[in-house]
């Protein structure tokens, strides 16, 4: 780790000012920043420790939905009774992330800003070329070991997968991030790489995520997060799906549907084509399996990750059928 100076701002405003200075980086849970600093990917000159700021860790769940302070710990949100009741997919996404220790450290705001696990991105000395780290330098992953790279939302500049679980559930249920002066839908806040993989979010200099809000919905109440991976625990998703269903009064016909995918795309991937294909239809296995294939529209495989194109629709289908109590 490079040497840095350490500051503890007393207020969010003070933190914003400090974070706007060049070379400054925010430290909340530390699980991303310190990891990347050790890899040589992050080299802050000043670390702004916001973990002691008061009043930013609350979790409120009411009729309108949930408001989660950016410094709330992943574990606290996962175990929150209101979240478990109103947004089961959010709780499930959280407890299946990382490990219990990391979830006690990592904050909700920081989790949404976590960086890709692309092995080429994480190895600056071995692979200087990385458009995320060094715009215009090229992508070392193309043609390399690509088992965990994205099949959706990639570009010739970058094929790095967004590793998040929580963000997938939040995108499914239209969560928003409050950045102080403005509020942005999370789906818009997290960017696909295009020609600028170095731009991962819509966060502007001096902005700090203060709150994450999730509107209440019937679909969110009846939701699940299904994560598939080779190792049973403590691994990033090979493919995952956050789904939620609202039925018509008949209990069979789909009124509202939410589908988002993780582990397969450069950002949490909302599959509106799957949602649209099933809305108004009766939930039944064949229709669900057929519609789930739409999630992979536009998917492009690399040498080692074609399995994701097979796997992801099956994860979506299982999640939907499970949520509809048909699996």
């Amino acid at each position: 780790m490079r040497d840095f100076t350490y500051q503890r701002p007393a207020s969010l405003a003070e933190a914003r000012n400090a974070a706007a200075l060049p070379g400054a980086m925010l430290l909340a849970g530390g699980t991303t920043l310190l990891d990347l600093a050790k890899c040589g990917v992050a080299a802050p000159e000043t670390v702004i420790d916001i973990s002691h700021l008061p009043g930013l860790a609350s979790i409120e769940v009411g009729l309108q939905g949930a408001r989660i302070g950016a410094l709330a710990k992943m574990s606290a949100v996962a175990d929150n009774a209101g979240i478990i009741r109103e947004f089961p997919a959010v709780s499930e996404a959280l407890w299946q992330s990382a490990s219990a220790q990391l979830r006690n450290m990592a904050t909700i705001g920081g989790n949404l800003l976590q960086r890709t696990r692309c092995a080429y991105f994480r190895d600056p000395s071995g692979f200087p070329a990385c458009n995320k780290r060094n715009p215009g330098s090229g992508c070392s992953a193309l043609g390399g070991v690509t088992r965990n790279h994205a099949v959706l939302g990639a570009s010739p500049s970058c094929i790095a997968t967004n590793p998040g679980d929580l963000a997938v559930a939040l995108v499914a249920f239209d969560a928003q991030v409050e950045l102080g002066a403005r509020t942005v839908a999370l789906e818009d806040f997290l960017l696909t790489p295009g020609d600028h993989p170095e731009r991962e979010t819509d966060l502007r200099p001096g902005e700090i995520i203060a709150t994450v809000s999730i509107p209440a919905s019937v679909a969110a109440r009846r939701s699940t997060y299904l994560k598939v991976r080779d190792r049973q625990s403590y691994e990033f998703a090979a493919a995952s799906a956050a789904v939620g269903i609202e039925f018509e009064p008949d209990g069979r016909t789909i009124r509202d549907l939410r589908v988002a995918l993780g582990g397969v795309a450069t950002r949490p991937w909302r599959a509106r084509n799957v949602e649209d294909a099933l809305k108004g239809k009766v939930l039944e296995p064949d229709a669900v399996r057929r519609a789930s294939l739409l999630a992979m529209e536009g998917a492009i495989a690399q040498a080692d990750n074609h399995y994701k194109i097979e796997l992801a629709p099956r994860v979506v289908a299982r999640a939907l059928l499970k949520t509809g109590e048909l699996a």
Binding site: L34, D49, M105
Partner: peptide, 16 residues
Amino acid sequence: GERVLACLTLAAQVEG
């Protein structure tokens, strides 16, 4: 009282 990883925690961070 909560379990965390000391390798991803700065000593300065836990003052107090």
